[in-house]
Simulated scan of single mutants.
Amino acid sequence: MDWTSPLFIGQFIAIVIMAVALGLDALSLGIGIGMKGIRKLDVLKLSFVIALFHMVMPLMGMFMGGYVSSLLGGVASKVGGVLLVLLGVHMVYSSLKGEEAPSLDHRTLWGTILFALSVSIDSFSVGVSLGMFSGDILLTVLMFGTVGGVMSIIGLMLGRKVGRWIGEYGEAMGGVILLAFGVHFLL
């Protein structure tokens, strides 16, 4: 492969733009979770899982690229929106209810998978679309995973700092961010 060819450069730029667009989910989710309070080790673990999902989901989508992209694209986006709305409502409810209401814990396996799935499910529909074109699969999944992981680290660390400034309202504000982002997906 010629790394300097206009075709490769154009493909690379398109993949970077898509990776950043898909990584914005991870950034905003990271801010929401980080505001709730998160340890640095959990930042790394959650970001790693998000990066992994940002690679696996589009890869699965690419393999299914021969199927009906338009049908799956809308459904995947709606499912991701519903998951984010539910997570946001739950976080707001938990913060208003106090310690009596158990919150979804990002440190548990189920919580980590649910968070990672909610921000990477749209990568599946993008993968379906990309699967219909001949492109560099390895470059695409590595770029999606790297950008998704880095953007989740940035979001989680930014959320941690903001969460310290606003104190006990951090979980509620994080929930509102997730809720707004989920509603945006649904509209």
Rank of each mutant, 00 (worst) to 15 (best):
residue 179 L to R: 11
residue 35 M to V: 06
residue 12 F to G: 06
residue 1 M to L: 11
residue 15 I to F: 07
residue 85 V to S: 15
residue 150 V to H: 01
residue 164 R to T: 06
residue 73 G to W: 11
residue 23 G to T: 08
residue 79 V to W: 13
residue 98 G to F: 10
residue 25 D to T: 01
residue 3 W to N: 12
residue 54 H to Q: 10
residue 79 V to Y: 09
residue 108 T to E: 06
residue 123 S to N: 12
residue 73 G to E: 13
residue 28 S to K: 09
residue 41 L to W: 15
residue 182 G to R: 12
residue 161 K to E: 08
residue 179 L to G: 10
residue 96 L to E: 09
residue 24 L to S: 08
residue 165 W to M: 14
residue 162 V to K: 00
residue 81 G to Q: 14
residue 58 P to A: 05
residue 61 G to K: 02
residue 65 G to A: 10
residue 93 Y to G: 00
residue 104 L to T: 02
residue 131 G to H: 05
residue 116 A to H: 03
residue 144 F to G: 01
residue 24 L to Q: 05
residue 97 K to S: 08
residue 175 G to E: 14
residue 114 L to T: 03
residue 67 Y to Q: 04
residue 113 I to D: 03
residue 1 M to F: 12
residue 12 F to W: 11
residue 136 D to V: 07
residue 70 S to D: 15
residue 80 G to Q: 12
residue 131 G to N: 05
residue 134 S to H: 14
residue 35 M to C: 13
residue 154 I to A: 08
residue 161 K to Y: 13
residue 181 F to G: 13
residue 167 G to E: 12
residue 22 L to T: 02
residue 44 L to K: 02
residue 88 G to A: 10
residue 78 K to S: 15
residue 39 R to I: 12
residue 32 G to K: 05
residue 149 G to W: 01
residue 113 I to C: 02
residue 172 A to G: 14
residue 66 G to W: 10
residue 165 W to C: 07
residue 181 F to V: 15
residue 63 F to T: 02
residue 113 I to Y: 02
residue 150 V to N: 00
residue 57 M to P: 00
residue 39 R to N: 14
residue 74 G to K: 08
residue 11 Q to I: 04
residue 14 A to Q: 04
residue 94 S to N: 04
residue 149 G to F: 01
residue 28 S to R: 09
residue 89 V to H: 10
residue 19 A to K: 05
residue 66 G to M: 08
residue 111 G to F: 06
residue 89 V to G: 12
residue 22 L to M: 12
residue 167 G to S: 10
residue 109 L to V: 01
residue 112 T to Y: 06
residue 117 L to E: 05
residue 7 L to A: 13
residue 5 S to I: 10
residue 56 V to C: 01
residue 70 S to C: 06
residue 128 V to R: 04
residue 47 S to N: 00
residue 75 V to F: 15
residue 87 L to Y: 14
residue 152 S to Y: 05
residue 168 E to G: 13
residue 107 R to E: 07
residue 25 D to H: 08
residue 19 A to Y: 07
residue 135 G to K: 03
residue 101 A to E: 10
residue 116 A to E: 01
residue 14 A to F: 09
residue 133 F to D: 13
residue 93 Y to N: 03
residue 173 M to T: 12
residue 171 E to G: 08
residue 4 T to V: 07
residue 147 V to Q: 03
residue 53 F to T: 00
residue 110 W to Y: 03
residue 53 F to I: 00
residue 129 S to T: 11
residue 145 G to F: 01
residue 26 A to Y: 02
residue 55 M to S: 02
residue 75 V to I: 14
residue 154 I to Y: 05
residue 185 F to K: 07
residue 171 E to W: 13
residue 7 L to V: 12
residue 29 L to H: 10
residue 181 F to A: 14
residue 35 M to G: 12
residue 50 I to L: 01
residue 102 P to H: 03
residue 137 I to D: 08
residue 131 G to C: 11
residue 60 M to T: 00
residue 80 G to C: 10
residue 22 L to D: 11
residue 131 G to A: 12
residue 67 Y to F: 13
residue 28 S to E: 11
residue 87 L to K: 08
residue 34 G to W: 09
residue 34 G to E: 04
residue 71 L to C: 08
residue 154 I to T: 05
